[in-house]
Design a protein around this nucleic acid. Structure first.
Lengths: 331, 331
DNA sequence: AAGGCTTCTGTGAACGTGCACAGTAATGCT
DNA sequence: AGCATTACTGTGCACGTTCACAGAAGCCTT
């Protein structure tokens, strides 16, 4: 009834522990005969290595901790995390490693994460949605390698990351709107302590120059309600606007509602550009012209960086990947 | 530089390993003096228990594996999983346990999951979106306790679960549509190998009786595109329909598009009812009248069942929680 | 024929913990 | 006073693995 150990396998194969261990860990000095006997013994006994015993001696855990700092609720509905999680699990599984999820919403959570990581329970840390000034980043500095999916504002040189070229994406949308002959282009940004909030506004300003006046800029918090509010504000401040670039599709859905309430037609009176190419982009009416991010590639690069560091690379360079304009009907 | 061990703590506190261990594990026989000295020593040394060493001797891992069988991509955007993950991480953290994510999409994945779980690397298994006939369920039967969030079709008596009362929700919507005076009510279902697919149709049929003719029923696969297709089919087969109950909000968004394309006004010509009360429900035009599921409670109950089993409960009863009608503008 | 590689194998020690057991001192009970 | 009980503490062993080391066997070189 007991689970078979490496001893049982060795006995069944007629060799010693050491030889079995060598086979398991890919050491080259194992004779073909021994190899065959051991492989047979493993499948007969249904042996699977005990990771606890292994990590006790190797000081490695085969585990990566995914730490999410989103203080409230809905961190996940974002396809970003969905993709990242999937890619991470896949890539780690290939190396027989596993992904454990941790929340770092409040102080207690954060302490637990630090204890866990510094206690040596993870070989690496995958940071997600870490806000500017999050104390977690510094608390984790002395531990195992950490990377972030998306830059950590203010810690770009400390925490390696892979990210979308947010600024490029914003430029693409702004240029498209200008190219369509729009003259009074407004913007609803994300929160200004996130990379997406800051850099999408920067890209917008790159193209619009001083036409990007404060009057034409409203700030949201990624929620649909904030998009609706932002749009209403903008309409009040600049009734003559003929286009709006909204920093996320979800907020853009809110903006559409506000425009409809104000009797403006989209795209005839006002063109609307979104960002993310998420599932809401096609469920709105009209469907959103938006910016697609290479989510899967970003996720993949993030994990690649982390694995390189875990494998001993002293330093890795951040990776920034280009976005793509997706034209639908809203602009 | 080495991480402090229980020995170091014992030495610093002037007691023996055993006493420290007793304090750590909540044994009552520790004198107040020893307790104080040990607690001080722990915080001074920054000691954190080595889980590998602990599980080696206790045969427990402090880990729950969350296994997702969704064959393709987007398992996560569903707020269902988002909520479940969050709740699971929270509740497990309280007991100092952790959640590891595993995918069971293809055969290779499934084998890895079985190896992992039967190899004793998890104290419990949390099944998610497991389809009818999934071989994983039987392969896991001999291992540690497993529960499912949402019933596993055909294995309801083997795998304990917490779930929404899907059938009740469908009845609520059907009764509401009937109560609004609708006479020709159609339905677009989910895939018929999922609880949501089957039971939402059953609830609909409970209310409509033989009025729920095959002519008025189309099948979707939860995607928006399938909702659009289903609606087009229904309009072709029964042009006189005046209401449609769509088994998910996302499919309902597709149905709205098809209705708009056909020139039908919602809700004037056709009332549309959704299911889930997800974020799309408020981003469509008009916003969807839908059924809210108590996601957080279901998640909580699921984990509670699992923990009870891990704690040695021989048997637990499934939990089914009621839904709620949310009235917006589409019906 | 002797020595030195290369290839392969077995063995003892260590990793850090919990648990059973033995043991001590103080207290309560008759 | 004697004995049982309670409260507390220390010690040896086992958990299952990897790693360093030592050693055996075969082959090539001198």
């Amino acid at each position: 009834m007991k689970r078979p150990t490496i001893h049982d396998v060795a006995a069944a194969a007629g060799v010693s522990r050491g030889t079995v261990s060598r086979l398991l860990n890919g050491d080259k000095y194992v004779s073909p005969a021994a190899r065959a006997a051991i492989e047979r013994a493993i499948s007969e006994t249904g042996y699977v290595v005990n990771r606890a015993a292994r990590s006790l001696v190797t000081q490695r855990t085969g585990t990566v901790a995914m730490v999410m700092s989103e203080p409230h609720a809905k961190f996940f509905e974002d396809p970003n995390y969905s993709t990242l999680t999937r890619v991470a699990v896949r890539m780690l599984a290939e190396r027989d490693m596993s992904l454990v999820m941790m929340l770092a919403g409040d102080e207690g959570d954060r302490e637990r994460v630090v204890r866990y990581v510094r206690g040596g329970h993870a070989d690496g840390v995958l940071l997600v949605s870490t806000h500017a000034g999050d104390p977690l980043v510094d608390a984790l500095a002395a531990g195992p390698p950490a990377v972030s999916c998306g830059a950590v504002i203010g810690r770009e040189t400390i925490i390696p990351y892979a990210a979308t070229d947010e600024r490029l994406g914003a430029r693409q949308m702004a240029e498209y709107l200008v190219g369509q002959g729009r003259r009074r282009i407004a913007m609803i940004t994300g929160p200004m302590d996130t990379p997406g909030g800051i850099q999408r506004l920067e890209g917008f300003a790159d193209v619009l120059g001083r036409k990007a006046s404060r009057k034409l800029i409203a700030h949201g918090d990624w929620t649909q309600a904030s998009g609706e509010r932002g749009m209403a504000e903008l309409l009040a401040r600049a009734p003559d606007l003929d286009a709006v670039f909204v920093a996320s599709d979800l907020m853009a859905a809110g903006a559409l509602a506000a425009l409809r309430a104000a009797g403006r037609r989209v795209p005839d009176d006002v063109a609307v550009g979104g960002f993310d190419d998420s599932s809401v982009a096609v469920s709105t009416h009209p469907p959103l012209t938006t910016i697609r991010q290479p989510l899967a590639e970003v996720a993949q690069e993030t994990i690649r960086l982390l694995l390189a560091l875990i494998d001993g690379a002293g330093h890795v360079d951040p990776v920034v990947l280009p976005t793509e304009l997706v034209i639908r009907e809203s602009a």
